[in-house]
Design a protein around this nucleic acid. Structure first.
Length: 556
DNA sequence: TTGCAGTCAATATC
DNA sequence: GATATTGACTGCAA
């Protein structure tokens, strides 16, 4: 169906997203005879690895292929079928070298680029194709990701930010050329990096790319060149368009008749972006606090009450949950690092200020908090837990609104009890308020301890959490921390020993990992312990309730 | 089906 | 103009 659609109604290149371009690139390659049996037209010394995913295709395309024009279609180079994913250690090694030396970058590839579909490469607005990594290294970015030892995502983003700002390089340029991501994504990534172990393979890719980029001695230079080129291209285009009225620049105007594709549809396809009013957001947050996982029924009610589409409400919950989770991650990280530094000021203080707006908010939606007192209360402590656990009813009774605003800073594990406006039926909703289990985190080597950590809700730590909480819990169960301990050194995921070891070292050098992960040890953080305890109790209650099936009051 | 991870891309802010 | 925010979408897993 997709193919049919694509063949009959192709969108103009300029209107396609990176992803959307892939099929066309594939088609072009296929037409050129370059796309063989799933083998990447990778050039370079090593046999091209099999294309594992589309994403990976981009790299070679962008660089390999692109530059391949120099060695173009010599499918010869591409053909070397993959046989085996080449010994990873080897590939890594060579990749390392590639990365570490000024690779044949982007620029080169760009200019010479043939007429490919994207011959408007240097385009400003669409930076054309992203060139993730320079050189062939890109080819096995996925392998690298898979074999990569734990990286300090926080540290990496920090460094990247520094380099970018120091050199006046924009996120857009960086994202599009190095990461293959849009500006918004880059911003988000740099501002709220998730801990390595919480990332999926795909999610790790940008970090690996960043690390590789950081390792590249010419990274800045290359980006600068790109910047220059873009500028040049832009000027050029401006000129020509002025004179020749060439329709290719108007980014916004969008239409793009270029392919004759009906402009109309495009227009109509564009749905205006929904912007929720502050009150709506408030209401949603309140509802979230009551039920982070509202039932369809609740969602519907909310939608009608707020006059929103149910899909909007659903999306909002999804986004909110996941964003809160992220906030917590960074908070964790920050807490961890700061904790180490200043003991005294730790927890409370820190979170108070460090978590400025976003955090507070994030965390449960609670936004600001008014009363300072409130805030502290929670923080300081224990209170929170205690209060929560006991206070169910009371809280409920209390003014809902305020309550929620109250404090739950970031961690909380659970949604506050009480009542807010949620759609009345707050009560039952069959769904567990406890959010489901979270993330089976990728396999952090250690497993258990790692619990999902600081998740917003208890649920977060479901299974794992459980143990974590209960058994393994001991030491602050913190999320990341736990795991860090041991494995960190080993850094290697699973894999077998020797090979793994070897790989590890090469990877180490590749990534130049200083010390891998960032957030570490905050084990002794008292606040954490408290939280862990709280979590435990929540989990227990949940379990109990679940087994008994009674609606119980879920207040904690 | 549902929830989540990742992203995009339109907007809002700085 | 660059960066931050955020609603929506896609793909995947349970």
């Amino acid at each position: 169906g997709s193919v049919s659609d694509m063949l009959s109604r192709p969108k103009p290149w300029s209107k396609l997203t990176q992803k959307g371009r892939e099929p066309f690139i594939r088609m072009q390659l296929w037409l050129n005879g370059e796309l063989g049996q799933g083998v990447l037209p990778v050039q370079g010394q090593q046999p091209g690895p099999v294309l594992h995913s589309v994403t990976s295709l981009q790299d070679p395309l962008q660089q390999g292929c692109v530059s391949s024009e120099s060695t173009p279609k010599t499918s010869a180079s591409c053909s070397p079928a993959p046989e085996s994913p080449m010994s990873s250690s080897e590939s890594v090694k060579s990749l390392t070298e590639l990365v570490q030396q000024p690779c044949p970058p982007i620029e080169t590839s760009k200019d010479g680029k043939p007429p490919e579909p994207s011959d408007q490469p240097a385009s400003d607005s669409q930076p054309s194709t992203p060139l993730p990594l320079s050189g062939h290294s890109a080819l096995s970015i996925q392998e690298l990701v898979a074999m990569s030892p734990e990286l300090d995502t926080y540290g990496i983003t920090k460094r990247v930010k520094e380099v970018l700002t120091d050199n006046n390089l924009g996120q857009r340029l960086f994202g599009e050329t190095i990461l293959g991501l849009t500006q918004g994504s880059v911003s988000d990534l740099l501002a709220r990096p998730k801990p390595w172990h919480k990332l999926s393979l795909k999610g790790r890719e940008p970090f690996v790319r960043m690390q590789l980029w950081l390792n590249d001695p010419n990274n800045v230079e290359k980006l600068m060149d790109m910047k220059r080129m873009e500028k040049k291209a832009y000027m050029k285009r401006r000129h020509s368009s002025v004179s020749d009225s060439q329709p290719c620049e108007p980014p916004s105007v969008g239409i793009d008749y270029s392919q004759g594709a009906s402009p109309q549809p495009q227009h109509q396809l564009k749905k205006p972006r929904v912007v929720l009013a502050p009150e709506e957001k408030e209401a949603l947050k309140r509802a979230y606090q009551q039920k982070p996982y509202p039932s369809p029924k609740t969602i519907e009610e909310l939608a009608t009450q707020l006059n929103l589409k149910t899909s909007t409400v659903i999306n909002w919950f999804h986004n909110y949950r996941s964003r809160i989770r992220r906030e917590l991650f960074i908070e964790e990280i920050q807490a961890g690092s700061q904790g180490q530094a200043g003991a005294s000021d730790s927890p409370s203080a820190r979170s108070g200020r460090a978590a400025p707006s976003s955090e507070g908010d994030s965390c449960d939606g609670v936004e600001a908090a008014e009363g300072p007192g409130a805030a502290d209360a929670e923080e300081s402590g224990g209170p929170a837990a205690a209060a929560k656990s006991q206070g169910g009813p009371a809280e409920a009774a209390a003014a809902p609104e305020e309550r929620e605003e109250a404090p739950r800073p970031a961690e909380k594990a659970q949604p506050p009890p009480s009542g807010t406006p949620a759609p009345d039926d707050a009560d039952d909703e069959g769904r567990p308020r406890a959010p489901p289990p979270p993330p089976p985190p990728p396999p952090p080597p250690e497993g258990p301890a790692d619990g999902p950590g600081p998740v917003p809700n208890p649920a977060a730590a479901p299974a794992a959490g459980e143990d974590a909480a209960t058994s393994a819990a001991p030491p602050g169960e913190g999320p990341c921390r736990a795991r860090d301990g041991a494995d960190r050194s080993s850094a290697l995921p699973s894999t077998s020993a020797p090979a793994a070891a070897r790989r590890a070292s090469s990877l180490q050098s590749l990534f130049g990992l200083p010390e891998a992960a960032g957030a570490r040890d905050s084990r002794d953080n008292p606040l954490r312990k408290k939280k862990a305890a709280n979590l435990n109790s929540i989990i227990h209650r949940l379990e109990k309730a679940a087994s008994r099936e009674e609606p119980i009051e879920w207040e904690f």
